[in-house]
C-alpha cells in the first residue's frame, strides 16, 4: 500500500495542478496578510475561503484522479496486489498531497508574518486541521461517487451536485426549516443539523472560536455549552473522523463487489 501511496503521491506532486493549488494558497495567504496585516482578521477571511473551496477542490480532484488513472489502476489490478491496498493508496495519496498544498501554501506566509508570536496561532491551527479534514472527507466522498458511476460525465455531475448540496442547498433547507418551525424550540434541531454536515460543522467550530459565540444569544447558550467545552470539541472532532471513516469504509465495501 505504501508503494502505491508513494506512487500516487509523487505522481500528484509532479502534476501541474498540485502546484497551481499550492501557489494559489500561497498567494492568497500573502495577499491577505499584506492587505490587512492582522493575522486574526485574515483567519476569518481564510475561513470563508477554506470551507467553500477545500471541499470543492477535494471533490473535483478525487473524481478527476480516479477517472484519469483508470487505465493504470486496471493494470495494477491485474497484478497480485490486494484491491483494497491499491485504492487506499490512491485515496491517501490524493488527500495527503492536497492537504500538504493547503498547509504549506497557507502556513508559509503566515509563519513569515509572525504567526508564532500572535495569539491567533490556535485559531489558525484549528483552521488547518479543519481544512485537512475537509480534504479527506470530500476526496473519500468523490471516490465513492466515481466508483459507483462508470460514466465520466455523470460522475462529475454527481460529484459537483454533492458539493453543491452540502455547501449551499443544505444550508438553504436548514434556514427554511428554521423559519418555518419558528414557533418550536429549535436549538437542539440546529445543533444536530449542524453536526450532520461536515461543512457546517467546520464552519461552526471555527466561528465559535472567532466571532459568533456571544452573538448567538440564548439560542447560542446551547451551542456554546456544547462546542465550547472539551467534550463538544471531542464530539465534533469524532464526527469529522466519522465523516472520513464511513465513506472510506463504503469504498472498501464497494470494491469487494465491483467488477472492473
Amino acid at each position: 500500500m505504501l508503494k502505491i501511496l508513494k506512487y500516487s503521491f509523487y505522481d500528484l506532486m509532479r502534476s501541474r495542478w498540485s502546484y497551481v493549488y499550492f501557489i494559489f494558497y500561497l498567494i492568497l495567504g500573502f495577499v491577505l496578510l499584506f492587505l490587512n496585516n492582522d493575522v486574526n482578521k485574515a483567519v476569518i477571511t481564510l475561513m470563508n475561503i477554506i470551507i467553500v473551496l477545500t471541499p470543492l477542490i477535494g471533490t473535483i480532484f478525487g473524481v478527476m484522479y480516479y477517472y484519469n488513472s483508470r487505465e493504470f489502476t486496471e493494470l495494477l489490478l491485474a497484478q497480485p496486489i490486494n484491491r483494497k491496498k491499491i485504492f487506499m493508496g490512491q485515496y491517501l495519496g490524493i488527500s495527503i498531497s492536497l492537504t500538504l498544498s493547503l498547509v504549506l501554501g497557507l502556513g508559509i506566509p503566515f509563519l513569515l508574518y509572525g504567526l508564532l508570536k500572535s495569539a491567533a496561532i490556535f485559531n489558525f491551527s484549528l483552521l488547518l486541521i479543519v481544512g485537512a479534514f475537509l480534504n479527506f472527507i470530500f476526496v473519500a466522498l468523490s471516490y465513492n461517487i466515481a466508483l459507483s458511476t462508470e460514466n465520466k460525465i455523470k460522475g462529475f455531475g454527481y460529484a459537483i451536485l454533492m458539493w453543491l448540496f452540502l455547501a449551499v442547498i443544505y444550508d438553504g433547507i436548514f434556514l427554511i426549516s428554521l423559519v418555518i418551525f419558528n414557533d418550536y424550540p429549535l436549538d437542539k434541531f440546529s445543533l444536530i443539523a449542524t453536526m450532520l454536515n461536515p461543512i457546517d460543522l467546520s464552519r461552526i467550530l471555527i466561528l465559535l472560536k472567532l466571532d459568533i459565540s456571544a452573538l448567538l444569544g440564548y439560542t447560542g447558550a446551547v451551542f456554546r455549552k456544547f462546542f465550547g467545552t472539551g467534550f463538544g470539541m471531542l464530539v465534533s472532532m469524532s464526527i469529522l473522523i466519522f465523516w472520513v471513516i464511513i465513506p472510506v469504509f463504503r469504498i472498501n465495501q464497494k470494491l469487494k463487489k465491483k467488477d472492473f
Binding site: 475561513m47 470563508n48 470551507i51 467553500v52 455547501a167 449551499v168 442547498i169 444550508d171 438553504g172 436548514f174 434556514l175 428554521l178 423559519v179 419558528n182 429549535l186 436549538d187 440546529s190 449542524t194 457546517d200 464552519r203 461552526i204 466561528l207 466571532d211 459568533i212 452573538l215 448567538l216 444569544g217 440564548y218 439560542t219 447560542g220 451551542f223
Partner: peptide, 14 residues
Amino acid sequence: QTPEALVLLRSLFV
C-alpha cells in the same frame, strides 16, 4: 425573525 438562524452566519448560502 428567527434568532436561531444565526448559526448559518458566514455560510455560502447566506
